[in-house]
Design a protein around this nucleic acid. Structure first.
Lengths: 211, 211, 211, 211
DNA sequence: ACTTGCGGGACGGCCCGTTTCT
DNA sequence: AGAAACGGGCCGTCCCGCAAGT
C-alpha cells in the first residue's frame, strides 16, 4: 500500500466505494418513493455518478435491489445467529436479546426499509423474494422456533405450537416497520415504538410462560 | 338482417352492473400484480369491456382504487361497529367476536387484498391513504381500544396501555393478510391461519387477563 | 298546416330547429377553443342534446363545420352581390358600402369566427377550404376587382393592378377579425376597429384615386 | 447523414446539432400540418432521432414551439431594430427598408410559418402568445409607429393616426404569409407576392404622404 | 480504461370521435 | 332520441445499450 501514490489510492478507494455509495442512494430513494417510482436518474444523481455508471456495477435496477438485500441484510442474520449461540440465559432472555438487537440494528434504522420494500414489491422480484424467504425469514424463524421449543422442553414455556408462536412473535415487529413506512406516514396519531415492543414482549411472555 | 335472431350483438348496455364488474376485475388484477403493474387494458379485458368504458365510470386508475376502498371496506367498518354495539358478553368475547368476524368477511376473502395494496402502494395515494387511516384504521383502533379500556375498568384485564395493546392485537392479523399476499407467496412453509389466529388470541388474552 | 295538431307542429319546429341550434353551439365553441380542441360532448351539452343526436344531423364533426360555412356564409355572399348590383354611385362608394356592410354583418358579429377558423384549420379540411375559396373568396375578389377595374376605366382610379389592389383592400379587413380572435386576445393594447377601418379605407382611396 | 462510411452506426452523438435539427423538422411539420396534428413520432422520424431523444432537449411539444419562437424570431427583431437605428434616409425609405428586409428573411422563407402557427393555434399557448405579442409584435409596432410619428413631425407624412396606420401597414404583410399557408394553399388563382407588396407600399405611401 | 451521457424503443394512462343498442 | 360502449391513437416516461470523452 505504501508504495502506491496517494493519488492512486484515492482513486482506488473511490472505485471500491462506488457500489456502496450507489446502494446507499438507492436505498434512500426506494425508501422515500418505492422501487418502481424511483428512477435511475435520481439514483445516479444522488450517488453523484451518471446513469450509465450504474450499469458498470449492477446489471439492472432489480440487481441493485438484490445486492442491497444480500450485502446488507444477510450479514445481520449471520450476526444474529452468532449472538444467540453465544448467549447464555433463559430462553426469554435469549428472545428479548434477539428482538432488541434487531430493533437497534434494523428496526429503527434505515435498514428497516428493506423488509417494507420486499413486502410491497415482492411481485416484481420472485427470485429475490424467494431468496429472502429462504436466507432471512426461514433462518430467523428457525432460530426463534428452536429457542421456543427449547423453552417448552425445559419447562420455561407452556406447550405452545412453536410455529404459530414464532409467527405471532415476529408479526408485530415486522408489521411496525412496514406500517411506519406506509400508511403510518399518513397516521396523525403517533405512538411510542419502544413501549409498543415492550408491551408486545410482555404480553407474549405472559402468554407463553407458566403462571 | 333485423329479422334474424342469429345476429350477434357486439355488446350490451348494462350500466348498473358495469362498475361492479370493473371493480371486481380491478381488484383481482391489483391483487395479482399490484396497482402500478396492472394495466388498464387488462382490467378492461377481464371486465369484458373496452378501455374507454372504464372512463365512463371512473375518472382515473386511482379513482378506481378509491371507489374500491370506499364502497367495499367502509361498509364493513360500519357493520363491525354495529356488531360490537349489539354484542353482549365479556370484553374478551367482544374482541374475539370482532376478530373472527373480520377474518370471515375480510381476512380470508379477496377483500384482504385491499389492506395489502394500501400498505404496499400508499406512496402513490396520499389522499386515499389518509382517508383509509381516518375512516378505517382509526375507527377500528378506537373501537378496540374502548373495549380494552372497558375491560381494564371492569377488572377483566390488567392495567395495560390500551394504545399499545390495540396495536399489538391488530398487527398479527393485518400482517398475516399482507404476508400471504407478498413474501408469503414465495414461502415454502405453509401454516394454518386459523391456528395462527387462535394462538395469537390465546397469548394475547393470557397476557392481558388476570391470572 | 291547419290539419296538424299544435303538438305535432311544435315537435316539427323543434326538429327543424335542431340543426341550427347545434350549429350555433358549435360555432360558439369553435370560436372559443378552436375546432380540434372542441369536443363533441361540449357541443351536445351546449345545444342541449345528446352526443348521439349530433349524428342524426351531421355525418361527422367536420361535416358540422362544412354545414356552418355553407349555410351561414354563402348566403351573405349572395346578398353582397345583390347589394352591389343594386347600388348606384361612385366606385369608391360601392366599395365603402361593401366594406361597411361586411363589417356590420360579419366582421363585428360572431360570424367573423368562421374565416378565422378556416384560416387556422384549413389543413384539416381541404375540401371545405377549396369550397370556401371558390364560393366565397373568389366571388368577393371578383366582385371588388370588377369595381376597381370599372373605376380605372372610368378614370376614377389610377391605373393600378386590380388583382393586387383587391388583395391589399381585403387583407386588413380579414386580418383584423383573425387577429382579434387569436393573438389579439393576448394583446394588452386595444384599438378602435372603426378607426382602423376608416384609416385603411382613407389611405386606400387616397392611394388609388387621382390627386 | 453518416451513410458515407461503410460501417453503419445506429446513431452518433451530436449534442450541439440535435436541437436545431429537431426544431427544423418540427417547423417543417408544423408548417405542413399544424401544431396539434403533428405527432411527436413524426418529428422524431424526420429529425432522424427517436421520440425519447426529443425529451432530452425539450420538456414538451409546446416547449419545442416556444424554443422555435424564441431562438429564431426574437433575434430577427433585434436585427430589425438595429437595421432601423443604423439607417439614414427618409422615413419612407426606413419603412421600405424594414418591410423588404422582413420579406427577405421571414416573409418568403420557411420562418413565415411561425406567425401563421401562432395565429392559428394561439389558443393552446396563452403564455407563448403573450410572449410573442410583447417581444415581437409590440416591438415591431412601436418601431414602425415611431417612424411614422417622426414622419408626421417632420412634415413628410400627413397627420395620420399612427396606431391605426401601423396596423394598416402591417396587416397585409402578415396576412399574406398566413393566407399563403392556409386557404391560399387551395386557391387556384396565384399572385405575385412582390407585386402585392409593392402595390401595398405604393398605396400606403401615397395615402400617407402629402400630395 | 473508466466514466459519461446521448439515443433507442416500447409502453401506459388518458382522451375522444364514432357506432351500436335501447 | 338518448345513452352506453367501442377502439384507436397520442404524449410523456423510463430502462437500458452503446459511442464519445477524459
Amino acid at each position: 500500500m505504501a508504495h502506491t501514490t496517494a493519488h492512486k489510492q484515492r482513486w482506488q478507494r473511490r472505485k471500491a466505494a462506488r457500489p456502496g455509495e450507489i446502494l446507499d442512494a438507492a436505498l434512500e430513494l426506494f425508501t422515500e418513493k418505492g422501487f418502481v417510482a424511483t428512477r435511475l436518474d435520481e439514483i445516479a444523481d444522488r450517488a453523484g455518478v451518471s446513469k450509465g455508471t450504474l450499469y458498470l456495477y449492477f446489471d439492472s435496477k432489480e440487481d441493485m435491489f438484490r445486492a442491497m438485500v444480500q450485502n446488507i441484510i444477510v450479514p445481520h442474520v449471520d450476526q444474529a445467529e452468532q449472538l444467540i449461540s453465544d448467549h447464555v440465559g433463559t430462553q426469554r432472555e435469549l428472545i428479548e436479546c434477539f428482538v432488541w438487537n434487531w430493533w437497534e440494528v434494523v428496526g429503527k434504522t434505515r435498514l428497516a426499509a428493506i423488509p417494507k420494500l420486499l413486502v410491497a414489491e415482492a411481485h416484481h422480484f420472485p427470485e429475490l423474494a424467494e431468496f429472502y424467504v429462504i436466507h432471512v425469514v426461514d433462518r430467523v424463524r428457525n432460530l426463534l422456533a428452536a429457542i421456543i421449543r427449547q423453552g417448552v422442553a425445559q419447562g420455561e414455556f407452556k406447550k405452545v405450537d412453536a410455529n404459530s408462536a414464532v409467527r405471532v412473535l415476529i408479526a408485530p415487529l415486522v408489521f411496525a416497520v412496514i406500517w411506519d413506512r406506509s400508511l403510518g406516514l399518513f397516521d396523525k396519531s403517533d405512538y411510542d415504538r419502544g413501549q409498543y415492543i415492550r408491551t408486545h414482549l410482555q404480553l407474549f411472555f405472559e402468554g407463553v410462560s407458566h403462571r
